[in-house]
């Protein structure tokens, strides 16, 4: 009786080399000129990427690294040789041989007028970039006359597309001024500070949250960010992730804590520190940046360049910090 040879399994021979990452696709470089200097950037870059690589400072308002460029504010426009109109640097892709000018008369005029149009219609007092941009382009929003009276609460939200009341020749300039919307404990919406950059809509929609609680409603100058039928946030689809606050460039969307401190005159940026930590709630492990003033957390953000969050959080990480401050009497740290 012949014996059946045992079946043996052998592990494959070990590679003599440590495992390597797959070969990266070869990046094609594109050459263009910016203000006469030759620059080489990877294909698929935007003019803005090229400008930044070259150290050319370009103003932006509606652009954010973690959102799809919507190119609506037009403050980043540049001159591209051969193009009839100016191009938005933040979204126009570079092409070989493109000749870009970022500081011509035409560019400066458009940027200046765009800033003036915004400054004359929107309250930019809490927009961090605004003062530097205005100074750089000599923008003077007063040229259009003094600001007209703000609208009553919810008045702008009721405007229908089509006919408006024709301007009456008064020397005042229409604005988006209106009372602040305060309808929940977590954040306020002050749309008199809204430049309609669409960032919050993108963050609430497919770029981050996929909740679609807010959208742009109305048309033209009457366009505004709105929930369905302008219902309050508690009645809307909002889940209070606060990602819209994180991307808002003007402070139109603001933590209630920050808003109340600003109202009370106690908001003091010089006295604030930012500390990065990891959110304690779930296993995702989002990076939190805690903004602390007088030993109290006043605001929570996440770094845009965090590979976990790309700047976005959920309601727990964003707003669930009060437990940190629920100190037992007597248990407060003594040092």
């Amino acid at each position: 009786m012949s014996s059946v040879p045992p079946i043996q399994f052998y592990p494959p021979a070990r590679s003599s080399q440590p495992p390597m990452p797959p070969e990266a696709a070869r990046v094609v470089q594109v050459e263009l000129t910016i203000d006469g200097r030759t620059v080489s950037v990877p294909a698929g870059s935007t003019i803005l990427d090229a400008c930044r690589a070259e150290g050319v400072d370009t103003p932006t308002l509606c652009y954010l690294e973690n959102l799809t460029p919507i190119n609506a504010c037009r403050v980043c426009v540049v001159e591209v040789a051969g193009s009839r109109v100016l191009a938005p640097a933040c979204s126009r892709k570079v092409e070989p041989g493109m000749a870009v000018q970022t500081d011509t008369e035409r560019v400066r005029l458009s940027r200046k007028v765009v800033l003036e149009l915004l400054g004359s219609s929107v309250d930019l007092s809490t927009a961090p970039q605004a003062p530097a941009y205005f100074a750089r382009y000599g923008a003077d929003p007063e040229r259009f006359g003094a600001a007209a009276q703000p609208a009553a609460a919810n008045e702008r939200d009721g405007l229908e597309a089509g006919h408006h009341h024709a301007a009456d020749g008064q020397p005042s300039a229409a604005t988006v001024g209106q009372p602040v919307k305060i309808d929940n404990e977590l954040y306020v919406r002050d749309y008199s500070k809204c430049i309609l950059c669409y960032k919050c809509v993108e963050a609430c929609g497919v770029d981050a949250q996929n909740t679609f609680a807010i959208a742009v409603a109305g048309r033209g100058f009457d366009a505004r960010i709105s929930t369905e039928w302008n219902v309050g946030l508690p009645d809307s689809a909002c889940v209070y992730c606060g990602n819209c606050i994180g991307v808002c460039p003007t402070g139109a969307l603001m933590f209630r804590s920050e808003y109340e401190m600003r109202e009370a005159g106690t908001w003091d940026e010089a006295a604030q520190t930012s500390t990065d930590t990891i959110c304690p709630y779930c296993g995702v492990g989002c990076t939190l940046s805690l903004l602390v003033q007088d030993n109290e957390i006043v605001k929570v953000t996440s770094p845009l360049d965090s590979s976990v969050t790309e700047g976005h959080l959920c309601v727990k990480g964003r707003f669930g910090f009060s437990f940190v401050q629920q100190r037992e009497p007597g248990a407060a740290p003594t040092t």
Binding site: V113, V114, H163, P171, A173, L196, R219, G220, A223
Partner: peptide, 23 residues
């Protein structure tokens, strides 16, 4: 009236243009 309202030059510029002509 007919500006879609998406971009600043047109959304606000058309308002300022109208106000200016009225003045």
């Amino acid at each position: 009236d007919e500006s879609c309202g998406q971009c600043v030059p047109c959304r606000v510029g058309t308002v300022r243009q109208e106000e200016l002509l009225a003045r």
